[in-house]
Computed example of a mutant assay.
Amino acid sequence: MDRKKIVHRLDTPFSAVEWPQISQEDQDAILELLCHLLSPLGQYRKAFVTPSKGKRKRKLVEQQGDAQTSLVPPAPEIAAYVDAGLSTISRNLQDLSAVAVSEKAEEAKGGEHDRKISSGSKKAPYSVIFVARSGQSSAFNCHFPQMVAVASKSQSPEQKMRLVGFSKSCEERLATALGIPRVSSIALRADAPQGNGLVDFVRKHVAPIEVAWLQEADSGKFLETNIEAVPTKIGSKKTKSS
């Protein structure tokens, strides 16, 4: 007969934050709007940016590039509002989080905060972050929900940063739209030109991320330690052989 014993454990509020639930139909619509918005960047890079051919040909490419620089038009305006790559976006989210924490602290003191925390805080905050999750280990992108929640703490409910995770494979299509070899994460800054339609659609169909323990921490209330007593099966007792 299986026996049971009582195991005591501490309940922790620092549990994993879930990604927003988005229907596949809405994901497909968002992907279409995003690729349409990014397509001028891909067209520009295809026409005017010479792909890297390795160190041996770098010097020749640079010499040719110096002669042709005056003929290359400026990049599309949207380029200044788009960041690509996990490292770049994570670093800028960290900067935005520092600004949000500073704002909250200064509001509590009744003073004004210094926005010049780092170079990343001088740009407009992100409005939406898009992540191609399909085929990736969760270790690569599991930090995004919590970082987005913290970075958007100081934003109004309507303007809060949104996080979109694509469940279907779309890395190749996004890379083609951007005109780069590969990409898994793309961030769009606020007030991006021609981006209102995409941002409005995302805000309508994707809920902002809420982290319960962050809200409890902001309340400043004392919470007692929560110790749970959980009955656990330990199996039947073995009999000694003679």
Rank of each mutant, 00 (worst) to 15 (best):
Glu171Asn: 11
Ser134Thr: 10
Ala207Thr: 09
Ser127His: 02
Phe144Gln: 07
Val101Asn: 11
Gly120Pro: 01
Phe130Cys: 01
Asp114Thr: 11
Ser154Arg: 10
Ile209Asp: 03
Ser121Lys: 03
Ile180Asn: 08
Val164Gly: 06
Gly220Ile: 08
Thr88Gly: 01
Gly220Thr: 14
Ser154Gly: 02
Ala212Leu: 15
Ser185Phe: 08
Trp213Tyr: 05
Ala98Lys: 06
Arg189Val: 03
Ser185Met: 11
Val199Ser: 04
Ser137Cys: 15
Lys204Phe: 08
Leu188Phe: 02
Ala207Lys: 14
Leu188Val: 08
Val206Ile: 09
Gly85Cys: 03
Phe222Ile: 14
His113Thr: 08
Val148Pro: 03
Glu103Cys: 07
Ala192Lys: 02
Ile227Val: 14
Phe130Asn: 01
Phe144Cys: 05
Gly85Pro: 00
Lys168Thr: 13
Val183Ser: 04
His113Val: 11
Ala212Phe: 07
Glu210Cys: 10
Asp200Met: 15
Ala212Cys: 03
Gly165Val: 00
Ala177Leu: 06
Glu112Phe: 05
Gln146Trp: 07
Glu107Gln: 13
Ile209Met: 01
Leu174Glu: 04
Thr225Val: 15
Gly195His: 00
Gln215Thr: 13
Glu158Arg: 04
Leu214Asp: 03
Ile89Gly: 03
Met161Gln: 02
Ser90Pro: 06
Glu158Tyr: 05
Gly195Tyr: 00
Lys204Leu: 13
Asp200Phe: 08
Gln155Glu: 02
Ser219Met: 12
Lys116Gln: 12
Val211Leu: 08
Ser97His: 01
Ser90Cys: 12
Glu216Tyr: 14
Ser118Pro: 06
Glu172Leu: 06
Ile186Gly: 00
Ser102Arg: 11
Ser219Pro: 04
Ala212Ile: 05
His113Leu: 12
His113Asn: 15
Arg162Asp: 00
Glu106Cys: 13
Phe144Trp: 03
Pro181Thr: 08
Gly120Val: 00
Val199Asn: 09
Ser87Arg: 12
Val183Gln: 04
Arg173Asp: 14
Ser185His: 08
Glu107Gly: 13
Glu106Asp: 07
Glu228Tyr: 05
Lys221Leu: 14
Ser185Ile: 14
Ala100Asn: 00
Ser97Gly: 04
Ser219His: 12
Glu228Lys: 15
Ala207Glu: 13
Asp114Val: 11
Ala139Leu: 10
Arg133Tyr: 06
Gln155Leu: 00
Phe144Gly: 00
Ser127Trp: 00
Gln146Glu: 12
Val101Gly: 05
Ala212Tyr: 04
Ser127Asp: 09
Gly179Ile: 01
Ser102Lys: 05
Ser152Thr: 05
Arg91Met: 15
Ala212Lys: 15
Ser119Ala: 11
Gln215Pro: 01
Lys204Ala: 13
Lys116Arg: 07
Gln194Asn: 11
Ala151Lys: 03
Gly197Met: 09
Ala192Ser: 10
Asp191Tyr: 10
Lys153Thr: 10
Asn141His: 14
Pro208Ala: 00
Ser90Gln: 07
Gly120Trp: 01
Arg91Gly: 10
Ile180Gln: 09
His143Gly: 10
Ser137Phe: 12
Gly110Leu: 13
Lys109Met: 14
Ala149Arg: 05
Ser184Ala: 12
Lys160Gly: 03
Asn196Trp: 04
Lys123Leu: 11
Phe166Leu: 02
Ile186Pro: 03
